[in-house]
């Protein structure tokens, strides 16, 4: 069980996050006061710390500065500030990720898992890229709950039913499936699928995602399977496809 310390002064939000993460089997400790955070983090050495920027007592940046050299785990900032300077300061101080509120719980979860995987990979000294290479082998079948994707046959089944996809939609789904729990920017998707750069205007990807959602039983306004991450891109959720 991964240990997480959440430093957040809004009691209601922190208890919501705690409940949510506990469902996914994380051991979450909530701290509401910046003054207590440094000692708690250093003594417990959790796998990951979620830090708010504005805190009573000591702010998030100060905490990050104090713990970074003595703490090996990941630091994720979660803040309502959209100030670029805060963002830069956070990354310079050694934060691993920076997220702006409001954030969907599923996205937060994906970020946390991503950081934990990366940390794990660093610890056992196997780069993530290598893992990914194996995954992208084309004869492989990817299965997420009731969703199964077979690259060689270009076939997709959901709860046993075959889903008919166009080539473009299939390529996109395959890309998502191979990058489960990662936020993929439109730019990245464009470069990978078409080899040309995204100019910020083309809605082709959005249309394809909308079609995929329709065919795979997801809802655009409250998506759980392919989530829109505001201002960043899309995120494929591996564990929301029902039990297979």
């Amino acid at each position: 069980m991964n240990k997480i310390i959440l430093v957040e002064d809004d009691e209601k939000l922190s208890s919501l996050i705690k409940n949510y993460l506990q469902k996914y089997e994380f051991d979450v400790t909530v701290l509401g006061d910046g003054n207590l955070a440094v000692d708690a983090i250093l003594s417990r050495q959790p796998d990951l710390v979620v830090l708010d920027l504005m805190l009573p007592g000591k702010d998030g940046l100060a905490i990050c500065r104090e713990i970074r050299s003595k703490y090996a785990g990941s630091i994720l900032f979660l803040t309502a500030s959209e100030d670029d300077m805060d963002h830069v300061a956070g990354v310079e101080l050694g934060a691993d990720d920076f997220n702006v509120k409001p954030i969907q719980p599923r996205v937060l979860l994906a970020r946390i898992r991503m950081l934990l995987r990366r940390n794990e990979a660093q610890r056992v000294n196997t780069p993530i890229a290598q893992n990914r290479k194996e995954k992208t082998e084309h004869h492989k079948v990817l299965t997420f709950g009731t969703l199964s994707i077979q690259y060689s046959k270009r076939s997709v089944t959901l709860s046993g039913d075959t889903v008919t996809l166009t080539t473009g939609e299939f390529e996109l789904l395959w890309l998502f499936a191979n990058h489960a729990e990662e936020t993929l920017s439109r730019d990245f998707i464009y470069k990978t699928l078409r080899g040309i750069e995204y100019d910020g205007m083309d809605r082709a990807i959005d249309t394809k995602v909308a079609n995929l959602r329709k065919k795979l039983g997801d809802n655009a306004s409250l998506s759980t399977r392919i989530i829109t991450v505001r201002g960043q891109g899309y995120l494929f959720v591996p564990d929301s496809w029902g039990n297979g």
Partner: peptide, 24 residues
Amino acid sequence: TNAVAHEIRTPVSRIRFQLDMMYE
């Protein structure tokens, strides 16, 4: 403006969280 954004975002992110959790 920053303060307003901050004050509004906190309840909004709580609502977002609760909505998604309610959905699941």
